[in-house]
């Protein structure tokens, strides 16, 4: 939360000038677009007659209705409590989004037919590739962060070379390099392990930096207190420093989780049957690309939302020792 000042101010959406401006803007936009040919026009048939022949009058009436509804909606939401506001706005945006998708005339039976396979094969593969990669990346990140903060020249050099290299190359290129490059050295590697390796190494590099800055954010005094009690390096790190660094580390790491989930789509280029791969191939035969792409998009989104929820739970858990 931003700092909530105690000065009362009138809600923006209840200021006449603001509502009037919005009204004019929305009205103008919908005058510019001709909606008489859409389902909106059908809805307005009792008022404007046959939509196709209504001409400017139709557009005017539709624009007016939308602008009035819009402003009314905003003013009313302004009265609700924060929680209710958030819920309503989310819900309305979602509805708009669905309305947008319906304009594609998607074949729902086709989606229903392919969806189970997309989930059991595609989504499953996506999730397990991401989960394994993120686990490995976290381990790399802790080791990398310690190495980068150490006074050991070798450790520092290796860690900084690693982060520089893997943050500096496009992930797509890393996927190719590992899948096509390692066999040159005699390691024949399957597509899935190659994908996992590429994702782990790349995200490990980013997360090394996240962990390093998290560890560095902890006051020196914590190290001194811990060491002066007699705790060794490992104990100090595991029990004193990392638990305190976690609240700093978790938000950007949550970001990385979500981003990893979607970047795992890059391993589709080496033929792993994950969500993106299926989305591109399943609709090919019947030219129903849009159906599959949108279904996959929704699946990605749903899983991301789950991750967001998990992240906020964890953040709340660690907020305990911060509150007064």
């Amino acid at each position: 939360m931003l700092y909530p000042d105690t000065v009362e101010s009138e809600v923006l959406v209840h200021k006449p000038w603001f509502v009037a401006t919005l009204f004019v803007l929305v009205f103008a936009v919908f005058l510019a677009f001709d909606l008489t040919g859409t389902s909106m026009g059908e809805l307005m048939r009792p008022v404007i007659g046959a939509p196709a022949e209504s001409g400017f009058y139709g557009r005017f009436a539709i624009g007016l209705v939308i602008a009035v509804l819009f402003c009314l909606n905003i003013v009313l939401i302004g009265f609700a409590s924060l929680r209710v506001q958030v819920t309503i706005v989310w819900f309305e945006l979602l509805l708009l989004f669905l309305a947008f998708f319906t304009t594609f005339n998607l074949s729902l039976p086709f989606i229903a037919e392919k969806l189970p396979f997309m989930i059991t094969q595609g989504l499953f593969t996506t999730i397990y590739v991401s989960a394994i990669s993120i686990a490995i990346a976290s381990i790399i990140a802790i080791l990398g962060a310690v190495a980068k903060l150490s006074t050991n020249g070798f450790a520092y050099a290796i860690a900084s070379f690693y982060t520089s290299f893997f943050r500096g190359l496009p992930l797509l290129m890393q996927v190719y390099l590992i899948y096509l490059g390692l066999p040159q050295l005699g390691f024949i590697i399957d597509a899935v392990p190659a994908g996992i390796l590429a994702l782990s190494l790349c995200y490990g590099a980013y997360m090394t930096e996240i962990f390093r800055s998290g560890i560095q954010s902890i006051d020196r005094g914590q190290w001194e207190a811990s060491r002066s009690i007699g705790f060794g390096f490992g104990l100090t790190m595991r029990k004193i420093i990392l638990p305190q660094a976690l609240p700093v580390i978790i938000p950007p790491t949550g970001n990385q989780f979500i981003s990893m989930l979607k970047d795992s789509s890059l391993v589709s280029v080496i033929g792993v049957w994950e969500l993106m791969f299926l989305a591109r191939t399943l609709g090919q035969k019947t030219f129903q690309h849009m159906e599959m792409l949108i279904s996959a998009a929704m699946l990605y989104w749903v899983v991301s939302i789950c991750l967001e929820l998990i992240q906020s739970r964890i953040e709340r858990h660690y907020a305990r020792s911060k509150v007064r």
Binding site: D219, G221, Q222, E224, A225, S226, S228, Q244
Partner: peptide, 11 residues
Amino acid sequence: MVFQHFNLFPH
């Protein structure tokens, strides 16, 4: 050892 800034473990 007791420090100027206490250095208790806040978690």
